[in-house]
Design a protein around this nucleic acid. Structure first.
Lengths: 239, 239
DNA sequence: TACCTTTATGTAAAATTTACAATATGCTCC
DNA sequence: GGAGCATATTGTAAATTTTACATAAAGGTA
């Protein structure tokens, strides 16, 4: 990039090209058995009543990477959530009437425990199952599809989902997390063998209580062990 | 995102926030035994004489994803090259005096065969070995580092490098491509066994000619076979 | 024909993957 | 206290894959 007063030959000399830039967030909500996406319904304007991904126009006095956190904070009250950029949509005609470039981020949170708030010009906010996304404005359906692919790839490289589980969790919870996000079914025996062998989980010696069946063992995540694996280029092959 | 006349509550009402947006390209050049990056030297302006990644400000009448191709075309004359977005840098203070958001793309091409041209306000253009990148302007060194990580990850999922090899190539060329890009050394016997077993290469039955040693067999890439693998979530584990 | 350089290849041991189903536990209800 | 219910937990044999490692083959050159 040549960001000084000398403009490139493809740009108009001495005239800085300005653009409208927004941030769109695919906020994935993990439940015990379903993966959902947070959608907002526009309050007014041309798109009144239509459903869309939560997002906002960027502000030039705020770091771009802080924007998705702000969106999330306004809709869920959550802070310090895992968020990652996965794409940028920049076709000239993706939005009618004006060219809007959007940075697409995904986040992964727990749908439980947090109360949704309307905000950001939204009349309504709701969780929708990933398999049942309605028609959204612009290219938002495509953004969700790509976001899910990015999430799945990420999960195979990093167990980002453990942060959504309690400090101590059962192997079944751990497996369901993978199954739900990756949208696959796993063989329990083989999955456990693999995870145990990798050593990223530690048996706490405790058992869950107050369950009306055999109490499962509780495990914790061994971050050190995992960091060791990641430095060697970790990729979880499960099908 | 709520891109209609109704602005979000975090934005100033009825005033569209505009931004300066650029594209920076980490153009990787593959040689027989080295991975290089294309750098340009600024012609004039505040950054005169300093080295940087090639890039340009975006134009609002051109699809964002077409920009890196245009940059590449101007510097190398190459068209239809593999290019992929891997990050967006958007900190407020990453560039002095004005906030510039940049979309970072990487490309992978062959340094041979193509003549570099100065262009885009560049006084000079050159290939620099990935291990010897000088201090660049702004956060360009960081962008290269991230671009290399993205390239390595991509190569493990897709054999993007084959397009840089001749239609018919030797297993040694194929192996060197992986070694150079991933910056590792591979065991020849094990690498060949793995690749052959995967079936993504076809023995053409021909041999290279005019070599002053045992003539190696020539192979071609089996795109169909690879597509089959990719649909099952391909990831090449080699160390 | 001897030599140089690079290609091509095998194998045994260890580790991993795969495909399967029966038993163990804790609680509830009678 | 025993039967029933629901989930947790676990093993194994076969097939496949990975790992570590060294020698012979081929083509050209001198």
């Amino acid at each position: 990039m040549l960001p000084d007063s000398n403009r490139s030959r493809t740009s108009v000399k001495n005239e800085v090209q300005l653009s409208t830039v927004s941030v769109d967030c695919v906020i994935f909500g993990l439940e015990a058995d379903a993966l959902k996406v947070l959608l907002v319904q526009h309050d007014s304007g041309v798109m009144e009543g239509q459903w869309a991904l939560p997002g906002d126009y960027i502000r030039n006095d705020i770091d771009l990477e802080k924007m998705p956190g702000m969106v999330l904070s306004q809709l869920t009250g959550l802070d310090n959530v895992f968020v990652e950029l996965f794409d940028v949509m920049g076709k000239v005609d993706r939005v009618s009437h004006q060219r809007v470039i959007t940075a697409a981020y995904f986040a992964l949170i727990n749908t439980e425990k947090y109360e949704l708030k309307t905000g950001l010009g939204a009349r309504d906010v709701k969780w929708v199952d990933i398999h049942n996304i309605p028609a959204l404005i612009y290219d938002h359906n495509e953004i969700i599809k790509r976001g899910h692919e990015a999430l799945k790839l990420k999960l195979r490289r990093e167990p980002i989902g453990v942060e959504l589980l309690p400090k101590l969790f059962t192997l079944t919870q751990f497996q369901r997390m993978y199954e739900t996000i990756l949208d696959i079914t796993l063989d329990t025996r083989n999955f456990r063998k693999k995870i145990i062998k990798e050593g990223i989980l530690q048996d706490s010696g405790q058992k869950e209580v107050n369950v009306p069946y055999r109490a499962p063992n509780l495990y914790s995540f061994d971050a050190e062990k995992y960091d060791e694996l990641r430095s060697q280029g970790y990729f979880l092959n499960i099908y």
